[in-house]
């Protein structure tokens, strides 16, 4: 059962983890998964995380900044057990939810560092648009191996792609919006060689998806097709020079599936980086 700790310390969090692990299930971890989720994003983050720790056994550290509250650290510590298919054994994944109150909201690096699992990769899912100049972003960029964002959660597009590109040499990025376009990119790639002469790309979907698709075509084809964008919550229609592109088969991937895919990626994605730069 989860332990709730109020105004606690990291030592107490570690102790609680040890106590929770006493159930006997084998701890298996492939990474430390840090989630930066401001209060407005907390519910969505928890929804996406549901079931994810089973797919990617890890230590998940959910960080919620609460800078206006009186300084301190609240924690909920849980060890979740999952049966291993075809085996009588269970494995355990650890989930630590931390509320960083007061000044601690600006110092996530020093709070997360002692909790990282040694030698395993560190992924950070950053919910919402980062404050590009903030110390918390700077600290986590220094700390993690891969930062996973979803630029469709941002309001400041395409301007926000500028500071994002400025971080490419410091940390590997994944963008859920970019991942979501992959089936459509495959559909566009199938139009080769005619697409070489594209003049106009029409996209009905989120702005980020549209900008990234256009940036991708610009960077790959070395042309500047006009982008005609119609807003929609999901990416649902593409047309090249007025001709609709056949929609990819199957249902679009869920938010959990998209994040899950990115947690298996380790290297930089130069094609994405070029698309952002050209967006």
């Amino acid at each position: 059962m989860a332990q709730t700790l109020t105004n606690t310390t990291l030592a107490a969090v570690e102790r609680a983890l040890n106590e929770e692990r006493d159930g006997g299930a084998q701890r298996t971890s492939v990474m430390t998964h840090v989630v930066w989720a401001p209060p407005a994003w907390l519910e969505a983050a928890e929804r996406t995380l549901a079931g994810l720790s089973e797919r990617h056994p890890s230590r998940t550290i959910l960080l919620t900044p609460a800078p206006r509250r009186k300084g301190g650290l609240d924690a909920v510590v849980d060890v979740r057990e999952f049966a291993v298919e075809g085996s009588s054994r269970c494995i355990a994944s650890e989930v630590v939810e931390l509320t960083l109150k007061g000044a601690r909201a600006k110092a996530p690096g020093s709070i997360v560092t002692p909790l990282l699992i040694t030698d395993l990769p560190v992924f950070c899912r950053w919910r919402g648009e980062p404050d590009w100049e903030s110390p918390e972003l700077e600290q986590l960029v220094t700390l993690v191996d891969r930062l996973v964002v979803d630029s469709s959660e941002w309001k400041g597009l395409p301007g926000a792609y500028g500071p994002l590109a400025g971080l490419f040499d410091r940390v590997a990025f994944s963008d859920i919006a970019w991942t979501r376009t992959e089936p459509w990119r495959a559909a566009l790639a199938a139009l080769w060689p005619d697409i070489r002469r594209i003049e106009r790309l029409e996209v009905t979907g989120p702005q980020a998806d549209a900008l990234l698709l256009a940036g991708w075509l610009r960077s790959r084809l070395r042309r500047r097709p006009e982008l005609v964008h119609r807003r929609a919550k999901t990416l649902r229609r593409l047309a090249v020079d007025g001709v609709p592109v056949e929609a990819p088969p199957g249902e679009p991937a869920t938010a959990s599936d998209l994040l899950s895919q990115q947690l298996d990626v380790f290297s930089r994605d130069p094609v994405y980086e070029a698309a952002v730069t050209a967006a």
Binding site: T28, V30, E54, E85, R89, I91
Partner: peptide, 13 residues
């Protein structure tokens, strides 16, 4: 020291 294949890679073999 055990590494359980299905424990680390939960995709169904």
């Amino acid at each position: 020291m055990d590494f359980l294949y299905g424990g680390a890679f939960r995709t169904g073999l």
